[in-house]
Design a protein around this nucleic acid. Structure first.
Lengths: 346, 346
DNA sequence: CTGTTAGCGCGTTCAG
DNA sequence: CTGAACGCGCTAACAG
């Protein structure tokens, strides 16, 4: 019943009394094929609804035109924006996208990486799981010359392709903004120091305080594990029980929102008694009350850029730098705005 | 330099002075292979790091162990939760997941569907683009006996696999709740009536009003196009300029949040002067002020269930029904709670 | 300009 | 229990 639903070049060849290779060449505009046969072949192919068998093409060419994406959780605003950018850029140039999530578990990361390797993906885009400290499970790709682009959470000291932001500068800028708004005693809700990017945000934060000749108080500079809503609540409570904290820089928006809520519970006025900054600029920032200041972290653009870098690697185009640092942008909203309060963003 | 990074059964065969077919059989525990050779082969395979070439396996077996997912936008809370569920369930049984987004554009939907077809995916999970009214571009999968599971936005009158919620009931329940809270004049911000699910939500809403012997006022029952934040703002303004509207049921959370903001601008007290209900139970519901009541729409679970249904189709297991309707759940929060205000959810 | 041949790596007949 | 041979569908080298 499911007869000849997928026709092959052999079918066309037989029907036209030509050889399969002629069909193959005609379909891909090979110069050595005459215009009349070429057009005739293409016409019949279209008529019969011919579609090349990609599994055969892959086997033949030893590559798959498929990009693998590996990251912690698909359903997080930053990650899903990243994937969206990857998908759009990849699709536009005829590549497919296979996704894989680690749920921040190293064992799953290893297993899924293996599965992607087995699929013979032509390139990998990955952000490390929070637990990942060594990276030898990525070596299989290097050994088989499959390009890898790391994004966001990247290995320390890695020399290959990277698409990142300047986390130190972002942390510095965020804190400087708080200081400019008159904050004197700054706290920090940070992520796992296993990941360099959280260290960098923290270091930038501390440097800004030092540069402003303000005191650094280690009791209110905390680092968590996964920066969940719950963890944010806990850390905010811990920080806010210290007297006089008037500014708070959080390494993601979820924890910043938690801090906002804790402040509300404790009847601490935001921003007047406590100015708060988040990180990522998740959609959530615009709907909390007061709207949350944050650092725009360009997920979608980073996704598109990852694909671009991957193509440079595949095409062995070394004219561009392997490491790209995108700029973040301070999004100032009410949660941190003590002066010039007329500034208002929808 | 990239010498023998991928070893094949031929390599193993040569090394062990056996034939490739013996290796092949030994590796998959074929009963006709002796225990000693079988174990020896498996040991060497592991030692040499043998990995089957999936492209060859696919070509040989004419199938790919890859599930295609096609939906509007990856970076929307409901969709990314769905994808997350699909990925986890698929990965657990050794399937890969290819994603594809239509950006609610019919032409892109057709093109991407074609790309998925060409990949010879073994099953498709799809939610229709908002523009999609006829579905013949899905026929290619039916013709090639590739199972399709529709989810959420499903074709009208489709007889095959479907994973959905009861949108009529959800709309009815939402409105009934508003009525129970004392609302007398209910407005509705609805989605595109091109999609049955938005019609159903609206119909349920209207039915609840009728059943309560309250008047139905068409001027405050609107249907939009994409239910974006902006559209929500516009429709909310239109509805709230009619006097006496004291309840509002919105077909998604984005538009409900917009309505909340419009109410705030117009100094309309929520919930006392206006009770608001959203739909989907996006994370955003918990952080707006007041917290937004909504209908829990189980994206993650629906994703897992889609994979389950796909497997039933692939295994030709017809013992389960093709259509599954998951139940939604009313999440009552402050935005709609006029009575029993002590109820409180974190 | 076109046809023939060979092989990508695997699984699966059919022989032995 | 094991091996030889074949073909999945396509493309590229080698003829002519």
């Amino acid at each position: 019943l499911k007869e000849k639903v997928n026709i092959t070049i052999h079918d066309l060849a037989k029907e036209m009394s030509l050889s399969p290779s002629t069909i193959s060449r005609a379909l891909k505009d090979h110069p050595s094929i005459g215009a009349k046969t070429r057009l005739a072949v293409q016409k019949l192919a279209k008529l019969r609804g011919y579609r090349p068998n990609i599994m055969a093409v892959n086997l033949r060419s030893q590559k798959s035109k498929t990009i693998g994406v590996l990251l912690s959780f698909i359903n997080r605003p930053f990650n899903s924006a990243l994937i969206s950018g990857v998908e759009e850029a990849a699709r536009a140039i005829g590549y497919n996208v296979i996704i894989s999530q680690t749920t921040d578990n190293l064992e799953i990361e290893k297993n899924n990486l293996r599965a992607l390797y087995d699929m013979r993906i032509c390139g990998l885009i990955s952000s490390l799981s929070i637990e990942t400290l060594d990276f030898e499970h990525f070596d299989q790709f290097h050994r088989s010359s499959t390009p890898v682009v790391f994004v966001d959470r990247v290995p320390v000291g890695y020399e290959g392709y990277k698409v990142i932001i300047d986390n130190f500068k972002a942390g510095y800028d965020a804190s400087t903004h708080l200081i400019e708004q008159g904050c004197k005693k700054l706290g920090h809700i940070g992520g796992s120091i296993k990941q360099q990017l959280y260290k960098d945000r923290r270091d930038g934060f501390v440097q800004a305080i030092v540069d402003a000749r303000l005191p650094v108080d280690e009791r209110i500079i905390l680092n968590g594990k996964n920066l969940s809503r719950e963890e944010g609540t806990q850390m905010a409570k811990e920080i806010l029980q210290i007297k006089g904290v008037d500014g708070l820089f959080c390494a993601n928006d979820a924890s910043a929102v938690s801090a906002l809520m804790v402040a509300k519970e404790l009847s601490i006025a935001v921003p007047d008694d406590l100015a708060i900054m988040g990180f990522n600029n998740d959609p959530i920032c615009l709907v909390v009350d007061p709207p949350l200041s944050s650092l725009f972290h360009p997920g979608y653009e980073m996704g598109k850029l990852c694909v671009k870098k991957l193509m440079e690697a595949i095409n062995e185009d070394s004219s561009s730098p392997k490491e790209v640092t995108l700029s973040t942008e301070l999004k100032i909203r009410k949660s941190s705005l003590r002066k010039n309060k007329f500034i208002h963003e929808k």
